[in-house]
Simulated assay, not measured.
Amino acid sequence: MMMLATMFVLGLLLGFAGGGGSGFVLALLISVFQIPIHTALGTSTTAMIFTVISGSISHFKEGNMKLKTGAMVGAFGAVGAYFGTQVAAQLPETPLIIVSALLLFVSSILLFFRTRLSGSVNVEKVFSRKQYLLLAMGVGGSTGFLSGCFGIGSTPLIQLGLMIFFGLSIQQAAATSMFVLIPISFLGAFGFAQAGFVDITLLVQVVAGTMIGSFIGAKFTRLAPVQVLRTVIILLPIFGGILLLT
């Protein structure tokens, strides 16, 4: 019951902020529920599939999402995620935990400065087909690899890339990042399942809470003041990083 309640609350926050939440789920599983790191990686990444699908449906209905950009970045991200899982399977526990926590801190800092400078409105950019593909490959491939290797979901980095390189507003980036994470989470989960790092019983408990919470939380993204959304997006990875290191 405690696991379900914890994951439901987390799902509310993830749906609102546009995150898959594998980094925060990873932190909770390791620090609070004492799950081994590789099992936590595989299970949190697999759970992210259901969270991001639920949140994406809700965001799409709310009209927040940029489907074309999300699909292109997500496709390249899926390839990066699969290769990331192959690297993660070979890494010892301590480096995985430390690097995952550091990535969460860094992404939060970058988001803080980017959203502070850009304000609440960005102007969507126009690219040639070649430029568009290269940007999608760069943003998707790099964030997908980090997601697969270190289990952080890379949501803040994806949102940062969508705002900087594609000109999406903070609301659009929050929504579109969930769509990007669908193929990333699928390929990441496949890679971890191949390595035997997915606990089905644990997965069901995580998914039951986060999926319902994510669907409900996404309803409030468009309604919330930009400053509130910005604060939640920035603070979530910080809390996740702190949990990983405790």
Rank of each mutant, 00 (worst) to 15 (best):
M3F: 08
F8P: 04
F8D: 08
G11E: 11
L12C: 14
L13F: 12
G15C: 07
G15H: 10
G15S: 14
F16V: 10
A17Y: 12
G18A: 12
G18C: 15
G18N: 12
G21V: 11
G21S: 11
G23C: 04
G23W: 01
V25W: 00
L26T: 12
L28K: 03
L28M: 11
L29H: 03
L29G: 00
I30Y: 11
I30R: 01
I35F: 00
I35E: 07
P36M: 02
I37F: 04
H38V: 01
G42Y: 02
G42V: 02
T46S: 13
M48V: 02
F50R: 05
I53W: 09
S54T: 02
G55D: 04
S56G: 04
H59N: 03
K61Y: 07
N64H: 07
K66Y: 05
K66H: 13
K66L: 10
M72P: 08
G74A: 13
A75H: 06
F76L: 07
A78P: 07
V79A: 14
G80D: 05
G80P: 07
A81H: 02
F83E: 00
Q86M: 14
Q86E: 15
A89C: 07
T94M: 08
L96D: 10
I97K: 15
I98D: 05
A101N: 03
L103K: 08
L103D: 05
L103Q: 06
I109W: 12
L111A: 02
L111K: 11
L111E: 11
R116L: 11
L117K: 15
S118H: 05
G119R: 09
V121M: 07
N122M: 12
V123M: 13
E124I: 03
V126K: 13
V126Q: 15
F127A: 01
S128R: 14
K130V: 15
Q131S: 14
L134M: 08
A136Q: 06
M137T: 14
G138D: 13
T143H: 01
G144F: 10
G144E: 08
F145N: 08
G153N: 00
G153C: 04
G153T: 04
P156R: 08
L157G: 03
I158A: 02
L160I: 10
G161K: 02
L162I: 08
G167W: 06
L168W: 09
Q172M: 09
A174E: 07
A175W: 12
V180R: 02
P183A: 13
I184P: 07
F186K: 04
F190H: 13
G191P: 03
G191M: 10
F192I: 00
A193Q: 13
A193N: 13
V198N: 06
V198F: 04
V198W: 06
I200S: 08
L202T: 01
V204C: 12
Q205E: 11
V206R: 02
G209D: 08
S214M: 00
S214E: 01
F215M: 10
F215N: 12
F215A: 14
I216E: 02
I216T: 05
G217M: 08
A224Y: 12
V226Y: 06
R230F: 03
T231I: 02
V232R: 00
I233K: 04
I233V: 15
I238K: 05
G241N: 05
G241Y: 06
I242M: 12
L243C: 08
L245T: 06
